[in-house]
Design a protein around this nucleic acid. Structure first.
Lengths: 238, 238
DNA sequence: AGATTAGTCAAACGTTCGTTTTAATCATAT
DNA sequence: ATATGATTAAAACGAACGTTTGACTAATCT
């Protein structure tokens, strides 16, 4: 009924196997027998240690998100302390929010790319209990960062900021989750390996400028149509 | 064995029900009994008309993607004819590629927002047969648009263009698929209804500037860190 | 009319699912 | 050593899954 004991490694082995398999095959596409098979534990062990398959998925995420939430909050706190009441730079906010996430991908002890890809995929999973779980897990952090962005961009309507926050989350999640899926769609190899710390580092270098460019794009006054504002290509930063 | 006959509406009713349910609950989360129940047809009708659940999903997409592919190609052809051999404007390419997609969301006869959201979600579904299917469906169109982007941005490395194409696809798919999911995460209502033509029109106005901003962002020379290139907020377009 | 076919229907097929049960095993503290 | 509580093990549970069968209906063609 309780878990005060340090426990052997059965719990961790299950969590690791579930993390990898959920990433690879999705929640509904992964059976308990696949998980216990890969973890080399008895089938009943999952229900004994976690109670149910749903609770297992939640625990897979809690184990990682508790670190991520803590780190994201402390990164923002640090920025705000240094700023002495001044609004933050948008780029610094993004660096804190997404940079923290990408740092998980470089550290195998924090789940590495496996967890990053699982996270990106699961955000679009339709199951109700998954959505409800994420809502609770993310609420505080997102609220803090939203507020910071409002202050950093005082002339931009809040609604527009929230939209772009959505879009940045989407681009990042997709970039993380769908690397190989998108490579199939676009038919390009992109010569990056999806595993390991290098992948996360490449992601950071590629994605952050894109996100910043999107966040600072001209506001939509009326319609995006015929006469566009400019045709300049991406400027080479010195 | 063949289907030359016009057939009653059983096929269409199954396709419509499957489209909606796959969108709502995902492929693995939707059972044949849910589909035939919603379509008010016999359970065996799916296997009779389509052969299997996998084949049904493929047909759900084929019915819409054949239109989308045709339209995207003809939009690009028209642009290139008008351009008389000159490279196209990146904004025009995006308008052709994503604008065509978003136009599906305003037309209920083409699937409307239901299909748009299904498409966005399914691109991240891990099942192998789904990925293989999309690879085949998208190959030609993506190849054409990639080439157009290469010509439109001659000074940008091809690899970078492909990356940003990925990222734009991701932001768009996520924006379409995850509207309510992301609203839960960010705790904001965004006062848009997810259904109907208005949603697609709003999406276009909000997302297209973001995508253009990302596409034209400064290239990553070294690292995105401490000293950012600028802190300007989104400029208000007159 | 009778023969043929496409389509529908209820029922059942064998599997696999998540979960539960019951007993055996292990560690530790008395 | 023995009792106790935590963990593992093997087997089975009922439910739900995708699919198939075989009888029945309605339309089509000669």
């Amino acid at each position: 009924m309780s878990e005060p004991k340090p426990l052997p490694d059965t719990r961790e082995r299950i969590l690791d196997a579930a993390e990898r398999l959920f990433m690879e095959s999705g929640y509904e596409g992964t059976s308990m027998r696949m998980i216990t098979g890969e973890a080399e534990v008895n089938l009943a062990a999952v229900n004994y240690h976690f109670g149910s398959k749903e609770a297992l998925l939640r625990e897979v995420f809690r184990r990682r998100l508790s670190w991520l939430n803590r780190e994201r909050l402390s990164a923002l706190n640090e920025l705000e302390e240094k700023a002495n009441g001044e609004p933050l730079k948008p780029s610094a906010i993004l660096e804190a929010f997404f940079g923290t996430l990408l740092r998980m991908g470089t550290d195998e002890a924090l789940g590495g790319m496996t967890f990053l890809r699982l996270l990106g995929r699961t955000l679009t999973e339709p199951a109700d209990f998954i959505r409800a779980f994420f809502a609770g897990e993310y609420a505080e952090v997102v609220e803090r960062y939203k507020r910071a962005l409002f202050r950093a961009l005082p002339e931009v309507p809040h609604e527009e900021i929230i939209w772009r926050f959505h879009l940045m989350l989407g681009a990042m999640s997709y970039a993380i989750a769908g690397t190989d899926a998108l490579q199939i769609v676009t038919g390009c190899e992109l010569d990056m390996n999806n595993e390991g710390p290098d992948a996360a580092r490449q992601l950071a270098e590629r994605v952050m400028p894109f996100l910043l460019g999107g966040l600072r794009a001209p506001l939509p006054p009326f319609q995006v149509s015929k006469e566009q504002q400019s045709t300049t290509e991406p400027t080479k930063a010195a």
